[in-house]
């Protein structure tokens, strides 16, 4: 519940910022073309997490379309990995599997100036196998030693929803940089009879909800990258006003 409150706070602050931005610029905004191009993007945080030896990481790419410079239907796919050894128990968990997300972003910035304040929703799903091992352990009350577990290839499956908020800006020509924060709510999971996975690829550390985020390097392709038509419309209007 605390996680949800934090996320809702971030969302409200973002929307308030968007509203202030809109008040600053009161000129009439022209409508962008119906189809403004497409983009492909990759998450930069995954390789960083992999490089610093994080407990879990993901390599993720995606593609999206741009309608009216406001609506961005998209899909994301990646590979999530976790190899985790317990600090006190010498237990070991491992999984590596692909995951998929589909959804849509909405750009709250009414001006077509290349900066975007985004809110969105995603549906994610994955099917994966996970391993769990632990050494022999003692029975402190009844005595004797219990043979350790060596459970490999336990089948897992999960579906979840993500609510995102973030922003992006144009760095150069057809290249953009953006980031977003994500509140993830697990909808359903299938787990082994011996226990649920520690990590779900694409979702993160297993639980009813969690936070996440990505830092995306975005490449506009097609119409937007060639002609920058959306931005040209805005510039034309500025000239007319002057």
């Amino acid at each position: 519940m605390n996680r949800l409150r934090t996320f809702v706070s971030i969302l409200l602050i973002s929307l308030a910022t968007s509203s202030l931005m809109a008040r600053e610029h009161k000129e009439v905004i022209p409508k962008a073309p119906l189809f403004c191009g497409a983009a492909v993007f990759g998450d930069l945080s995954g390789p960083v997490m992999l490089a610093v030896g994080s407990k879990f990481s993901q390599l993720e790419v995606g593609a999206r379309l741009n309608f009216r410079d406001h609506y961005f239907p998209l899909c994301e796919l990646g590979i999530g990995e976790s190899t985790r050894e317990g600090q006190e128990q010498n237990n070991r968990f491992h999984t590596r599997a692909p995951y998929f997300r589909v959804g849509m972003d909405y750009n709250f910035n009414r001006k077509h100036n290349g900066n975007r304040l985004m809110g969105g929703i995603r549906y994610g799903f994955t099917s994966f196998k996970y391993d769990f091992q632990n050494p022999d352990f003692q029975d402190p009350i009844w005595g004797g030693s219990q043979k350790g577990l060596d459970l490999r290839g336990q089948q897992g499956r999960a579906q979840w929803l993500e609510f995102t908020v973030g922003c992006e800006t144009k760095i150069w020509s057809f290249i953009r940089l953006g980031w977003n924060l994500r509140f993830k709510a697990r909808l359903h999971q299938k787990k082994s009879e011996f226990g649920e996975p520690y990590y779900i690829p694409g979702f993160g550390k297993n639980g009813s909800s969690t936070f996440g985020g990505t830092v995306n390097l975005i490449f506009d392709v097609g119409r937007t990258s060639k002609k920058n038509k959306v931005i040209d419309v805005s510039k034309t209007l500025i000239k007319n006003n002057q």
């Binding site: 985790r84 050894e85 317990g86 600090q87 006190e88 128990q89 237990n91 070991r92 968990f93 769990f132 632990n134 352990f137 219990q146 577990l149 459970l151 011996f194 226990g195 649920e196 520690y198």
Partner: peptide
Amino acid sequence: HFESPDCPI
């Protein structure tokens, strides 16, 4: 039954 690599079986 396991819960997490950090938790006892």
